[in-house]
């Protein structure tokens, strides 16, 4: 977890740099610092997302992040790559139980409707199915991570 001072430093550094957007993820923590050039004046937004173990979030920022996620989703109409978005809020699990093999890994070839992962909410485990067939090129979630509605979980490459 970053301290307040570290966070201030981070914002300052980004502000003074030519970087527009800075995203940092480590140990279940996500920090996103972004410059938004609205009406010529630059301002920063900082967002912190946490895994449920040490939950703490900036609610206003979370709402902003969700909007962004939705935007990202709608812009991912790239033919080559398909993003699988979370249809609900829930905790991500890559396997049906701790001893089982993960449903998919990077490199796994998947068919349409194949189970990719489960999202747990209110003690119910919801299977997330692939909408397309292809190859998993990226997994954007970690076991136990709380996934927001609309958050991308997988990137699947169209192989044909």
């Amino acid at each position: 977890m970053l301290t307040l001072n570290q966070m201030k430093d981070l914002i300052k550094t980004v502000d003074q740099s030519s970087v527009d957007r800075f995203k940092f993820e480590a140990e279940g923590m996500k920090v996103l610092v972004e410059k938004i050039a609205a009406s010529g004046q630059s301002s920063e937004r900082i967002q912190v997302g946490e895994t449920p173990e040490n939950q703490e979030s900036i609610s206003a920022a979370a709402a902003v992040q969700k909007e962004k996620v939705d935007k990202e989703a709608s812009s991912s109409t790239d033919k080559e790559q398909h993003r699988v978005l979370a249809p609900m809020v829930g905790t991500y699990y890559s396997r049906s139980n701790p001893d089982a093999e993960p449903f998919v890994q990077v490199g796994t070839k998947v068919e349409e409707n194949q189970v990719l992962c489960v999202l747990e909410a209110m003690k119910l485990f919801n299977e997330i199915h692939s909408e397309v067939s292809g190859e998993i090129v990226e997994i954007l979630a970690e076991d136990g991570q709380l996934i927001e509605y609309g958050q991308p979980i997988f990137v699947i490459k169209n192989v044909d």
Binding site: N97, L124, E127
Partner: peptide, 9 residues
């Protein structure tokens, strides 16, 4: 396509 995991209870 959803289920209950008894281990959570």
């Amino acid at each position: 396509d959803w289920y209950v995991n008894p281990a959570s209870v």
